[in-house]
Amino acid sequence: MKQTDDKNKAALRRTTWKQIRKCKWLYIMMIPVLAYFVVFRYAPIGGIVIAFKNYNVFKGIWASPWCGFATFQKIFANKNFWNAVRNTLTLNLLNLAVSFPITIIISLMLNEVLHLRFKKVTQSILYLPHFISWVVVAGIATNLFTQQGGTINNILNAMGHDSVPFLSDNGWWIFTYIICNVWKEVGWGTIIYLAALTGVDETLYEAAYLDGATKFQRLIYITLPSIKPVIVTMLILSISSMMSIGLDAPLLLGNSKVQDVSNVISTYTYQLGIQQAQYSESTAIGLFQSAINIIILLAADRIAKAMGEHGII
């Protein structure tokens, strides 16, 4: 019995080996790709050890002494760090609360459009801001929202209102930040829902129409349930990145007057790591951020599965 087992294994090994030799060129083609991942993805992951070391540029990573969790203790004791965490969560949650429903509503509106040319043109226009860099968006936003001479304040003044400090008041700055994000990404976000909406079974609508369901009823009882899996997936994805925030928008839109609300984890890491060369501290912050993200991702996936939806993992 054991002998035949061994024989089978040997035979399997032989065929696998043969297969590998047959695919030689495929492996050779993969070498540059794998090399990229080793050097620019895995080497930095290995570099995370400096979060647990007292990193000294002159000694290098390996010769620097270990310091355990001392760096983390130092960070957690810092008020600015918790301020950045709070701002990251606030901006992300508010952005999600505003962008998420608007994206779905605009998708549903576009889906109702039957005039193909109109639909194509409006879609092209809605996707456009996604392709504009944050530098340009921030530049445009500054031009529009500046307190003195900004176009929007000019219009407000002309209508007899006082100027609004869109960029220099904490609350208004958050408002402007959300507006910029909505303007840039909501149109692009509709693609995924529109794709899902084209997959909804037409016959359901026809049946409901014949049964006398109104447009609104069809929306509530057919359309929304049909795209629910996509909604849930997108929600999990957004929630699982609650601790990450793009660096561009807060860095470019922010200024010293609103740093109490615009200082987020990514900008804090940038200031600490690149501008002040505190490598261990900013690496530790990055690790903390990734860890929280993975925990939220797993939790959100579990909850979705418990609710009877497909998870994403």
Binding site: F37, V39, F40, R41, Y42, A43, P44, I45, G46, G47, I48, I50, I61, S266, T269, Y270, G273, I274, Y279, S282, T283, G286, L287, Q289, S290, I294, L297
Partner: peptide, 14 residues
């Protein structure tokens, strides 16, 4: 590497 990344500073050092 989609889920685990080195982050800004380790990448910068590499």
């Amino acid at each position: 590497t989609m889920y685990v990344t080195g982050g800004m500073i380790p990448t910068f050092l590499v």
